[in-house]
């Protein structure tokens, strides 16, 4: 078990090349002998197989790697079963954590069919979500009373900052005490007994923020102007699980301060 924890990049690469049929014969023999004699290595091997299968399903492998994997490992019933399981698992993880995925597109080829249902279209939906958020945020800004907290309404996004479209913007005018942010609780995280919120600044520093109020749909926080300077911010939300610990809700609420 410790073997998996200490697996080196070289070893991992060697196993990967073996799975793609790219390892010279002598190295292949050495690796196979180790498979027959070292239980920790067997576990390391399985971990790499999981990793490669994930990448295959997500179409992250290079063409040569993909072809090699299909030619050998994936011609077996065992390999195909693993791909089916992995596809379901990854799809489920995305669906339950808010990242939208497209269902499989019917296609004559087995592997094409499997690959197709990992066509994640998070960028498109993230753009729509961001646009809605910006309109909502803009509406609040236009109607806000003077010298009150600047209001901002945000939805969670599982896209990274780089992937997603422009995040909501807020301008802090002189005399404004800060920003009041309404965070829409994602569907899968509703109903928790408690939530926690952290503000992450552009320099990756994190700050816990007290929750002002919450209802079934939203959590509201106030960020004092003193904590905000122009730049990019992300908010992480955590929910209380039945075992009493807080678990991160996947994704972040992004916004920029101008």
């Amino acid at each position: 078990m410790g073997g998996v924890a200490t697996i080196t990049k070289d070893l991992e690469n060697e196993i990967r090349r073996y799975l793609f049929g790219q390892l010279p014969e002598a190295d292949e023999e050495r690796l196979e002998l180790r498979l027959l004699s070292d239980p920790a290595f067997v576990e390391e091997f399985d971990t790499v197989v999981d990793e490669v299968t994930d990448q295959y399903v997500r179409k992250e492998l290079e063409t040569g790697e993909q072809k090699g994997f299909e030619k050998s490992y994936l011609t077996t019933a065992e390999g195909q079963q693993k791909v089916r399981f992995t596809s379901e698992l990854l799809e489920r993880a995305a669906a339950e954590r808010g990242a939208p995925v497209v269902k499989p597109i019917p296609h004559p080829g087995f592997f094409e069919r499997l690959g197709a249902f990992w066509q994640v279209q998070s960028l498109r939906l993230a753009a729509i979500a961001a646009a809605v958020t910006m309109i909502a945020g803009g509406g609040y800004l236009a109607l806000r009373p003077a010298m009150n907290y600047a209001p901002l309404a945000l939805s969670i996004s599982t896209a990274t900052r780089a992937q997603g479209s422009a995040p909501a913007k807020v301008k802090l005018e002189s005399g404004v005490p800060g920003v009041e942010v309404n965070l829409a609780i994602p569907e899968q995280a509703k109903g928790a007994k408690d939530y926690r919120v952290k503000l992450v600044s552009g320099d990756e520093s994190e700050q816990d923020l007290p929750i002002e109020k919450r209802d079934d749909q939203t959590v509201t926080i106030k960020i004092p102007a003193s904590s905000l300077s122009p730049g990019q911010y992300a908010i992480k939300m955590f929910r209380l699980t039945p075992d009493g610990s807080f678990t991160r809700i996947q994704g972040s609420y992004f916004f920029n301060v101008e």
């Binding site: 498979l35 027959l36 004699s37 239980p39 067997v42 490992y73 011609t75 077996t76």
Partner: peptide, 23 residues
């Protein structure tokens, strides 16, 4: 017995990796 189990586990992985179904 432990060695036998390791050999068995290794053989299964070799066969699957080499595209031999019903490993």
């Amino acid at each position: 017995g432990q060695r036998y189990e390791v050999i068995r586990a290794g053989l299964i992985r070799i066969f699957v990796s080499k595209g031999v179904s019903d490993a």
